[in-house]
Design a protein around this nucleic acid. Structure first.
Length: 871
RNA sequence: GCCGGUGUGGUGGAAUUGGCAGACGCGCCGGACUCAAAAUCCGGUGGGGGCAACUCCGUGUGGGUUCGACUCCCACCACCGGCACCA
């Protein structure tokens, strides 16, 4: 895109032509290097960060909104005197580049860099004030080298490790699939059913930081509530106990985990996951076990079978059957559970299906006084006893009759999962659930049959990807030495270019002989490289660190260790802005990475992002804009038709940033109209305005007419409103509304005397300054039209004068019994007592009050009078 | 199921955090300019009643607190988002 050479003395067309205006000023800003960051430890800093885009090819409306918001913040803070870091970059590794390679035969690198060039132009065309000297491109070796370096540091600390894990595998394409490539359990290309395949993969031990990541949530004061909630939920901490149930006839224990120790006496069977290590030992029918494994982890009907073995409940010595069940997860807790059908719906369903006994041990507190004897229910009449799915049951293990007393006919239709009073629980009967949990935990620990534990839902972060377009994992496998990290001096491990994209096989890097075969760094013997690449979330977990330094091939390690490095100055990020879709993974990983960096002694911080703004989606016709829905709006077209200022203004005005934005073509027209109107006013009056001048401090003492002082007051009020709206909560929509009000007032203003013109100039200039973060190009042009020197961004944000902004007269509302009945215009100096009198003296109020008794009169300063009357 | 969010005119959204509900924009209606249209400008615009001054109703529903509730409390309904066989 061409940039018009700046020619300050030449004014543009009289008609508002956004293309001309915008290219002129974008050229000027670039030429003057206005957006460049200068490291100056003496100035107060502000790090404004927006989530960097994936270079998919084109900027979409979500980006427009995100970056318009970020740019307002950055420009506003600069005008407030902050030294602002406002960088941008590219999340450049990832699957779409490989897909493009397969589809069009273009190399992922070529495709990616082409997209970056194009999108960078688009961003510049929006007038975004980025410092491109700090541009980060994650697919460049000078960036990903440090991914590898961090990985090695984590490996040294035991924070990176290998374990066997499952991947999605398409048997027909013979390849590993990313989660996004699996659609309804089928391969995205050939639609065959995807299966799970075991592979040895690399993991980062994020769970080591589970507690800290959770506790840290409460310190994230500048984060939205909902994001905090999502993170906490994701981490999913729960306190409970692990208890050993010994297996009858074997010298083994089944260790179970529960958070409901209070229901231990109600356990009537034990379930283990089909992939539990003990399953192989306990189950003789291997075929049935295999079949069950296929149903493992799938939502739907709970199914399983009796193993033929029994366990002893250590609380009451009861002998209860051991089942294998598909709904028991191996990844959580111990992979084995005690089943309490009376108080857990899943166990209830299972017990119901297989006619297992249900024993009530908790009753709701209100009901605890009723007779709770004989609450144990018998198995369903006519049942098979200790059964199982006929097709899954092991034929030669006939379970004995249940060891429970047959009781009354009470019918339970669902589990009672709430808390209450314990019954039928030995020495713990009569206790409240919470007390019982504590006592039972003690009991278990004293007896050595178990211990208190804390479990987390979230798992370690699997970073291995069997893909090409990512950071090579810097590890070498040697026949003699085993797993050997690539020495730091050999970094980066460069991604080879001689790889074909066939869509077949495992990791594409296996195909590059040159890459694959290497020497062992320890013994020099024959070795091969790891061919998996890293999850691209690794890149985004620390890219904001890299922005703290200029781009290029720097030695990040020594930069980080320099005492007063730029890192120390810029971090943490003061304001982070991006979509909620990253509320969990990206933001959690970034927090984790920073804590690791801290523990490596590289940074003295606990959290990376002080304030977080999650902007809403851009919606059209009731749905998120997407190609598949065909409801996308192309920013290019809008910029061509209306210009970037209009596009920015609309996306800021249409809704507060955190809410979803409903796209409206007419709304865009409205924003455009507003700018045209402002342009027209400035041009119409430019001759008179250019020769007017004022000193800010003298304005107060000018002899002003009523209408001139009204405009002056409105201007100060607008400065106040816009400033407060931006500062508090970033309510840009109301800030813009306030500016529209001011422009409306300016439009109807008719100056006559010299002072009137002075005030008009003051009002227009302040409008321009206040509008500048939102629509930066048009204001620069009009600033110049008024006879000022560019750039107006070197102008400080204005202050308002509370005295001038104050209304001369206050309009009070008069209510009778809370209903609006009349109004009263008063001046500031009038006392409450006088106000009360004036209100009561009003003819209308007198009529309404009549001869009713006045019980009370409430006077709220500057607001209203409420007269409370009786009958 | 659990967690979180939202509910205000025809429409996007305001309401200084308990004090004039509907700012500002869009749309619509009327008018000016024009041969005409577009653009622009001016006026009107929550609903009902009244010629009118006015008046009654009105912030998802039902209750409550209060002189006063879109705002606070309780119960419920609807929609959206996240997690989900997590024991």
């Amino acid at each position: 895109m061409d940039i018009i050479d700046f020619a300050p003395e030449v004014f543009l067309e009289e008609k508002y032509n956004p293309q001309q205006v915008e290219l002129k000023w974008q050229g000027y800003w670039t030429k003057k290097g206005l957006h460049k960051t200068v490291f100056d430890p003496l100035r107060k800093k502000f790090y404004c960060l927006e989530m960097f885009p994936y270079p998919s090819g084109e900027i979409h409306m979500g980006h427009v909104r995100n970056y318009a918001i970020g740019d307002v913040v950055a420009r506003y803070k600069r005008m407030r005197g902050y030294n602002v870091l406002h960088p941008m970059g590219w999340d450049a590794f990832g699957l779409p580049a490989e897909n493009a390679a397969m589809k069009h035969g273009v190399h992922p690198a070529e495709w990616t860099y082409k997209n970056i060039r194009y999108m960078k132009n688009q961003l510049n065309r929006m007038g975004l004030s980025y410092d491109w000297e700090r541009e980060v491109t994650t697919c460049s070796p000078e960036f990903y080298k440090w991914n590898q370096w961090f990985f090695i540091k984590m490996l040294e600390r035991g924070l990176a490790y290998r374990k066997i894990s499952f991947v999605n595998w398409c048997p027909s394409c013979v390849t590993v699939l990313a989660n996004e490539q699996v659609i309804d359990e089928r391969c995205w290309r050939c639609e065959s059913i995807v299966v799970q395949k075991e592979l040895e993969q690399w993991f980062l031990k994020i769970t080591d930081y589970a507690d800290e990541l959770l506790k840290g949530c409460d310190e994230l004061k500048g984060w939205p509530e909902r994001v905090i909630a999502m993170q906490k939920n994701w981490i999913g901490r729960s306190e409970g106990v692990e208890v050993n149930f010994s297996i009858v006839g074997l010298d083994e224990n089944i260790r179970i985990f529960t958070t409901r120790q209070d229901t231990l006496f109600g356990a009537t069977f034990v379930c283990i996951a089909p992939v539990h290590p003990l399953a192989e030992k306990l189950v003789s029918d291997k075929k049935a076990l295999e079949e069950l494994k296929n149903r493992y982890g799938k939502m739907g009907e709970k199914t399983g079978f009796f193993t033929g073995f029994f366990a002893i409940n250590p609380m009451n010595g009861e002998k209860i059957p051991i089942y294998v069940a598909n709904f028991v997860l191996i990844e959580y807790g111990t992979g084995a559970i005690m089943s309490v059908p009376a108080h857990d719906q899943r166990d209830f369903d299972f017990a119901h299906k297989y006619d297992l006994p249900i024993r009530v041990v908790i009753v709701p507190e209100q009901q605890s006084s009723v007779n709770t004897l004989s609450l144990t229910l018998p198995p369903r009449g006519g049942g098979q006893g200790w059964g199982g799915d006929s097709e899954l049951r092991t034929p030669n293990t006939n379970p004995p009759s249940p060891p429970f007393t047959k009781g009354g006919q009470g019918g339970i239709t669902e589990a009672y999962e709430g808390e209450g009073i314990l019954v039928d629980s030995g020495q713990f009967s009569g206790l409240r659930s919470d007390v019982a949990r504590e006592r039972i935990s003690q009991f278990i620990e004293e007896r050595g049959i178990g211990k208190r534990v804390v479990n987390f839902k979230f798992r370690d972060w699997g970073i291995s990807r069997q893909r090409y377009w990512g950071t090579p994992i810097p590890v070498i496998y040697c026949e003699k030495c085993g797993v050997v990290p690539v020495p730091e001096k050999d970094l980066p491990v460069i991604l080879p270019e001689d790889v074909k994209f066939t869509g077949k096989g495992g990791s594409p890097l296996v195909e590059s002989e040159k890459f694959l075969n290497t020497d062992c760094p320890l013994c020099g013997g024959i070795a091969r490289r790891e061919t998996d690449t890293m999850d691209t979330f690794v890149d985004s977990s620390w890219y904001f660190i890299r922005y703290c330094f200029k781009k290029g091939d720097i030695d990040l390690d020594s930069e980080l260790r320099t005492p007063n490095s730029e890192l120390k100055y810029w971090m943490p990020v003061d304001q982070y802005i991006g979509g909620v879709e990253h509320a969990v993974l990206h933001l959690l990983y970034s927090r984790f990475f920073l804590k690791v960096m801290r523990d490596l002694g590289l940074i003295d911080l606990n959290e990376p992002f002080q304030n977080l703004l999650t902007q809403g989606m851009v919606i059209k016709d009731g749905a998120k804009m997407s190609k598949s829905k065909g409801n996308v709006v192309d920013p290019n077209h809008l910029i061509e038709k209306y210009g970037a200022d209009t596009l920015r203004l609309f996306s800021l005005f249409a809704a507060p940033p955190e809410k979803d934005l409903d796209w409206s073509d007419q709304g865009v027209e409205g924003a455009y109209r507003f700018l045209k109107r402002l342009w027209g006013i400035a041009y119409k009056n430019r001759d008179k305005l250019q020769v007017t001048s004022y000193e800010y401090n003298d304005i107060k003492s000018l002899p002003l007419t009523d209408y001139a002082s009204r405009l002056l007051r409105k201007t100060h009020q607008t400065i106040r409103r816009v400033t407060i709206d931006i500062e508090r909560e970033y309510h840009f929509n109301t800030a813009v509304a306030a500016l529209m009000e001011l422009v409306n007032e300016i439009a109807s203003y008719e100056p006559e005397k010299e002072e009137d013109w002075t005030i008009l100039r003051f009002a227009i200039e302040n409008t321009l300054i206040l509008l500048s973060p939102f629509a930066p190009h048009i204001v620069e042009e009009l600033w110049e039209v008024l006879g000022n020197k560019p750039s107006m961004f070197e102008h400080r944000w204005p202050d308002w004068d509370e005295e001038i902004a104050k209304e001369e007269k206050i309009e009070l509302v008069i209510q009778v019994n809370g209903k609006l009945r009349s109004r009263l215009l008063i001046s500031h100096s009038i006392s409450d007592v006088e106000i009360k009198e004036m209100a009561l003296q009003q003819g209308k109020i007198k009529d309404i009050v009549g001869n009713k008794t006045i019980k009370k009169v409430i006077v709220v300063k500057g607001k209203l009078v409420n007269i409370v009357v009786g009958d």
